[in-house]
């Protein structure tokens, strides 16, 4: 079976660079089409840089969430966690006078702690991760509300170093590198793939499955913290939400992860995640310059994700899909 998939032809031509070629090709094609349609208002160099900066927030969340997704689990609390972390960071910087150090460290710790709670709850309660994290997201949302005191958390102009280049690029690049390192150069990455591939066999091989599951939740939480820093810095403010409204922040990172999964066969999951998020921003901004309302972003994200997943997965006959 293996390599005899639909991309066999491309594989022959480009060899090990097939994945990279497809990724760059996707960006060039979508950029090209939109540039032809709107040569003046779309895709000036500084605009493209802007699109890229917009995609960093979700990308950072996605490279963390990827470990969970690879294991076959889900985390529905990343949106709530991200908001909570952003608020905690702001409070530490402004109300507790801890400066940028607090603004950086507090969200990361908060995110990792939330991840730890997720992981422990999932293991101890023995219920699907999707359900546990949904329930916990309810709690994180309301905790966020209390931490913020029910008012909007905002940053002044001189406090949003991480909202624009180079601040956001530094954090994002650090995050990407870290994620890549964990995935390729530590046992965690290997074991996450092993658990995702066949949990029973992995357990048999002596892998402490529960320990690594919890650890992975912590890693995801850690990246949510970074995502929170970028999110509040980019928009300069963050409102705590209730009623599961934080869910909407889950989708773009989740989508990026599926993009990453699709390109795993080429050995490029992390770049694919970033490119996937970037692609969405290009298409979205392109539509906006074409005169579409901002609501189009959701439609674009939804359709893109559906098509990517449906086209990259080859249905196996008789396979049971739930």
């Amino acid at each position: 079976m293996g390599s005899s998939n639909s991309k066999g032809g491309l594989n022959k031509i480009f060899g090990r660079y097939t994945g990279a070629v497809i990724l760059v090709g996707l960006i060039l094609v979508s950029y090209g089409i939109l540039k032809i349609l709107r040569p003046d208002t779309f895709g000036q160099p500084n605009q493209v840089l802007g699109y890229f900066q917009q995609c960093l927030i979700d990308s950072v969340g996605a490279v963390g969430l990827y470990f969970i997704i690879v294991m076959g689990l889900f985390d529905f609390s990343i949106g709530a966690n991200c908001i909570l972390c952003a608020i905690v960071g702001t409070v530490c910087m402004k109300n507790l006078g801890m400066g940028y150090a607090g603004f950086l460290i507090a969200p990361i710790l908060c995110g990792a702690l939330v991840g730890l709670i997720n992981g422990i709850a999932y293991i101890k309660l023995h219920i699907p991760s999707m359900i546990v994290t949904t329930g916990l997201a309810l709690i994180y949302e309301s905790v966020g509300y209390y931490v913020s005191g029910g008012v909007q958390a905002f940053l002044t102009k001189d406090q949003n170093f991480f909202g624009h280049a180079p601040g956001n690029l530094i954090i994002a690049c650090a995050a990407f590198l870290l994620s890549y390192t964990i995935l390729v150069y530590t046992k965690v990455g290997t074991y996450a793939y092993a658990i995702g591939s066949n949990e029973a066999v992995a357990k048999n091989m002596g892998i402490n499955v529960n320990k690594y599951k919890v650890l992975t939740f912590v890693i995801t939480g850690f990246f949510d913290g970074l995502m929170g820093i970028l999110a509040i810095s980019y928009g300069s403010s963050m409102v705590s939400v209730t009623g599961m409204a934080s869910m909407s922040r889950n989708f773009a990172p989740t989508m990026g992860c599926f993009f990453g999964l699709a390109f795993r066969q080429f050995g490029l999951p992390i770049p694919a995640i970033i490119v996937g998020e970037f692609l969405i921003q290009i298409i979205y901004n392109g539509f906006v310059t074409l005169g579409a309302p901002t609501a189009i972003q959701n439609v674009v994200t939804g359709v893109a994700l559906l098509l990517v997943v449906a086209l990259t997965m080859k249905p196996v006959k008789g396979e049971i899909v739930k």
């Binding site: 290997t190 793939y193 092993a194 995702g196 591939s197 066949n198």
Partner: peptide, 8 residues
């Protein structure tokens, strides 16, 4: 296990 390299 699928998803890992031969060496892994």
């Amino acid at each position: 296990l699928s998803g890992l390299t031969v060496a892994e």
